[in-house]
Simulated scan of single mutants.
Amino acid sequence: MRTVLQRVSRAAVSVDGEVVGALDRPGLVALVGVTHDDGPEQVETTARKIAGLRILDGERSATDLGAPVLVVSQFTLYADVRKGRRPSWNAAAPGPVAEPVVEAVVAALRARGLEVATGRFGAHMDVELVGDGPVTIVLDV
C-alpha cells in the first residue's frame, strides 16, 4: 500500500460539482493506492501511521489533536513510468480488490476515533487542498 499524506489547512473533494468529502479545519489528506497483495496487515500499519505521525501543529498527531482526515483512493500512485511515455497500471489492484481495502483503512481510522471524510471510489474527482507547511510524506507499507 502506498499513501501520500499531506498536512492541510482545509481540503475538499467533489464529483460532478458536488462536494462529497471535506475538511473545514486543519488535518490530513491521505491519497491511498492499493497493490495486489495488500491486506489487513497493510491496512493496520497504514491507519496507525496516518493517525499517529507527529506532523501536525506542535509536533502532534491527528489522534492527539482530534484532527480530521480526508481519504481519497489513488490507483495512480502505482504508475510505472520507467519505459516509454504511457504509464503502466499493472501494479495497481483492480477496483473490486482495492475498494474494500481503502474502505478498511477508513474504518480503521474511524475505529481510532478520528473523523474521516472520503472521496468516491472510481469516480473522476476534483481534489482541492491548501497545503500547510507544506508537509508531504510518502508511506510505503
Score class of each variant (00 low, 15 high):
Arg120Asp: 11
Ser88Leu: 08
Gly84Ala: 04
Arg120Lys: 13
Asp80Lys: 02
Phe121Ala: 06
Arg112Met: 08
Gly58Tyr: 13
Val72Glu: 05
Val102Ala: 01
Ala98Tyr: 08
Gly66Ser: 11
Ala123Trp: 11
Ala117Pro: 01
Ala123Thr: 09
Arg86Thr: 14
Pro87Lys: 07
Ala62Phe: 06
Val97Ile: 13
Val116Gly: 06
Asp57Glu: 13
Arg60Leu: 13
Val116Ile: 07
Val71Trp: 05
Val69Pro: 01
Val105Gln: 00
Ala79Gly: 09
Ala98Glu: 02
Ala92Asn: 10
Val101Phe: 03
Arg86Ala: 12
Pro94Ser: 08
Gly113Asn: 02
Leu114Asp: 00
Gly58Cys: 12
Thr63Ile: 10
Val106Ser: 10
Arg112Ser: 05
Asp64Asn: 01
Thr63Cys: 06
Ser61Ala: 04
Lys83Pro: 03
Ala79His: 15
Ala91Gly: 14
Arg120Val: 14
Lys83Gly: 00
Pro94Met: 07
Ala107Lys: 03
Pro100Trp: 08
Val97Tyr: 07
Arg110Val: 02
Pro100Tyr: 04
Gly119Met: 07
Phe75Met: 08
Val72Ile: 14
Gly58Phe: 15
Thr118Tyr: 06
Lys83Ser: 15
Phe75Gln: 06
Gly58Thr: 01
Gly58Ser: 12
Pro94Asn: 10
Arg85Gln: 14
Ala108Phe: 06
Ala104Arg: 05
Glu103Lys: 05
Ala123Ile: 11
Ser88His: 05
Arg120Trp: 04
His124Trp: 13
Gly122Met: 12
Ala62Met: 05
Leu109Asn: 00
Ser61Lys: 04
Glu99Ala: 15
Asp64Ala: 10
Tyr78Thr: 05
Glu59Lys: 15
Val105Ile: 13
Pro87Gln: 07
Ala79Ser: 15
Trp89Leu: 13
Arg85Pro: 03
Tyr78Cys: 06
Pro94Gln: 06
Val69His: 08
Ala98Cys: 01
Ala108Pro: 10
Ala62Gln: 09
Val71His: 02
Glu115Gly: 13
Val71Pro: 03
Arg60Ile: 05
Ala123Val: 03
Val102Pro: 00
Ala92Lys: 04
Gly119Leu: 07
Gly66Phe: 12
Asp57Gly: 10
Leu56Lys: 04
Ala92Arg: 01
Ala108Ile: 11
Asp57Ser: 14
Arg110Lys: 14
Ala62Val: 08
Thr76Leu: 09
Ile55Cys: 01
Ala92Gly: 03
Arg110Ser: 04
Leu77Met: 14
Val106Lys: 05
Val97Lys: 15
Tyr78Gly: 05
Arg60Trp: 06
Leu114Thr: 06
Asp80Ile: 06
Gln74Trp: 01
Asp57Met: 10
Ala111Tyr: 00
Lys83Asn: 14
Val71Phe: 07
Thr76Lys: 01
Pro94Glu: 10
Arg60Cys: 09
Leu114His: 04
